[in-house]
Design a binder for these strands. Sequence first.
RNA 1: GGUCCGUUCGUCUAGGGGUUAGGACAGUAGAUUUUCAUUCUACCAACAGGGGUUCGAUUCCCCUACGGACUACCA
Length: 516
Amino acid sequence: MTEREVRVRFAPSPTGPLHIGGVRTALYNYLLARKLGGKMLLRIEDTDQNRFVPGAEEYILEALAWCGIVIDEGQGVGGPHGPYKQSERKPMYKQYADQLIADGHAYYAFDTAEELDAMRARLQAAKVPNPQYNSITRAQMRNSLTLPEDEVKALLDGGAQYVIRLKVPRKEEVRFQDLIRGWVVVHSSAIDDKVLMKSDGMPTYHLANIVDDHLMEISHVIRGEEWLPSAPLHVLLYRYLGWESTMPQFAHLPLLLKPDGTGKLSKRDGDRLGFPVFPLEWHGTDAETGEATISRGYREDGYLPEALVNFLAFLGWNPGTQQEIFSMDELIQAFSIERVSKSPAKFDQNKVKWFNEHYLRAKSNAELAPYLLQALHEHAIVCSQEKAEQIVGVMKERVSFPNDFWQEAKYFFQAPTEYDETVVSKKWNAAVAAALTAYAEALPTAPEVSAEGLKTLFNDTMAAQGLKPGQVLQALRVAVTGAAAGPDLFETLVILGVPEVTERLRTAVATLPAAA
RNA sequence: GGUCCGUUCGUCUAGGGGUUAGGACAGUAGAUUUUCAUUCUACCAACAGGGGUUCGAUUCCCCUACGGACUACCA
C-alpha cells in the first residue's frame, strides 16, 4: 500500500458532557495525528435522536479547546468532507445499505419489537446461550430472506416499517490486527445480524461510522475498548462495501477504571468520591427526577489544562523514560501508539493533584495573579496587579489549586476577626503583648520597607525586651493574620504594609487576653 | 450464560529467560524552616495461583482464579 496521509478522528455522541475518558481518547488521537504530521477530525455521531442532549456539542468543542486539542477538520471547523454531523449526512447512508442488499450482504427485516422480544424469550426458554438475530434465527423471522419476493415488495411499497440488517455469515473467522492488542480473532457466529438502517431512516452507529470513516479517508481508528467486540463487525462491513484495502488501522484503548474497586469510571463516581469526571462543569437535568444537576469540572475546580493533559496522557501510556512532566509539544514528540498499554488504569486523584501543583508552581506570578484578582473581584475587593502578583508569589508553593489563593490569602485583605486558639493559648501573654506593642511603635514610617529590615528590627526589639524572637514570632503571626501558619512572616508584613500591620497589632493587643 | 480483552508495589508504570525487579504518586521517618507548606534525604511496598518448556521463568506456553468490556432499531 502506498503512503497514506494520516487522518484520525474523534467521534463523540452529543448525549451529555464529554467524559474524561473521552478526553483521553481525543488526546491520543490528537497526539498521533500531530506526531505523524496528519489531520485530526471531529465528527459528531448523533444518529440517535432520542439521546440527543442540547448543549452537548458545544460542550465537546469547548472542552477540547480548553485542553489544547486542536481540530483540523470537522464540526465547528469545516473542511472538504462535510457535513461533519451525522444527522446532517442522513441522505448519504441509504445508498450503501442498498448496495449491501443488492450484493446479498444485507436484507430487510419487518419484525416488530414484540416479535423480537418473543423470539428472545423463546430462545431463552430453550436455553440458547446467546439469543440473537443471526444466521440461524433469521430463518424464523419476517424478513426479505424468508418472505416471498412479492410480499416483500408489497410491504415496502405499502410503507411498512422495516430495518436493514447485515447478513452475517454462518461460519467464518473474522480477524484484524489491532495496533495495541495484536491479532484479534472472532468467529462470525458470535456476531448477530446488526441493524444497519433503523426504521426511522437513520443509520445505526455501525453503518454511519464505517461509511463516514471511509468517506473521510480515516487512516487510524483510535477508540475505547468498549468497541473491541464490534470491531469484527466493522471489518465485515468494510469488506462487503468493497473498502477493505483502505480500511483504517484499529487501536482499542484500555478503559479508565474507578479509583476504588473496579469497573468503568462513571459519572456517579465523581460525586461519590469527590472529584470531577468531566473537563468542564456541566449543567444538566436528572434523567429520573427532572431536577437540575451540576456536575463538577476540572476547569472550575481549578485544574490547569496542561496538568490534566499530562496526567491523562500517562494513564495508559508512557514514553519508556523516567521523564513524567511533558508539555503538549513534548507529548507529541514522544508519543507512539505502540507504547500504549493493554491493561486498564485506575484513576488516581493524588496524581492529578500532583501534576496540578507542579504546573501551578511553574507558572509566573503574572500568569497566576488573575485567579486571585477574579476571586477578589467577586468579593468586591480592589487590588492592584502588582500586589496580587506579590501575594500569589508567596502563596503558590503552598496551594494545590489557583482557587485556593483567595481562601489562603484572605487575611491580606481582611483583618482577622478571630485568632488561632492553640497559638493564643500557648504563646500569648502580657510580656509578648508588650513586646509586640513596642514593635508596632518601632515600625518605620517610610513607605519603603524590606522583609530583611523588618526582621532585623524585630530581632532588635525583642532583644531590648529581653525576649527571644522565637518566643514572639508565632504570636506576631497570629496577631497579624489570625492564622497559625503561612508564608514567610516578614514577607507577609511587607505586603500588608506598615500602617495595616500597626493597626492589626493594636487591635490584637486590645482584643486578646493579656493574662498569664 | 456466551464472545472478546486484560492481570508487576495501595495507585500509574519500567523491565524482561539469569536484575539488589527501576521510577513516579500516596504513605512513613528524618533534615531544613520562626510556623505550616515547599525542598532535600531515607524507608515502606509488587511479578494472581497451578502446571509445563528450560540448566534457569516474574518474563514463553497451557489451565485456573479474578477483573473488565460487549451481548439494543445506544453510541
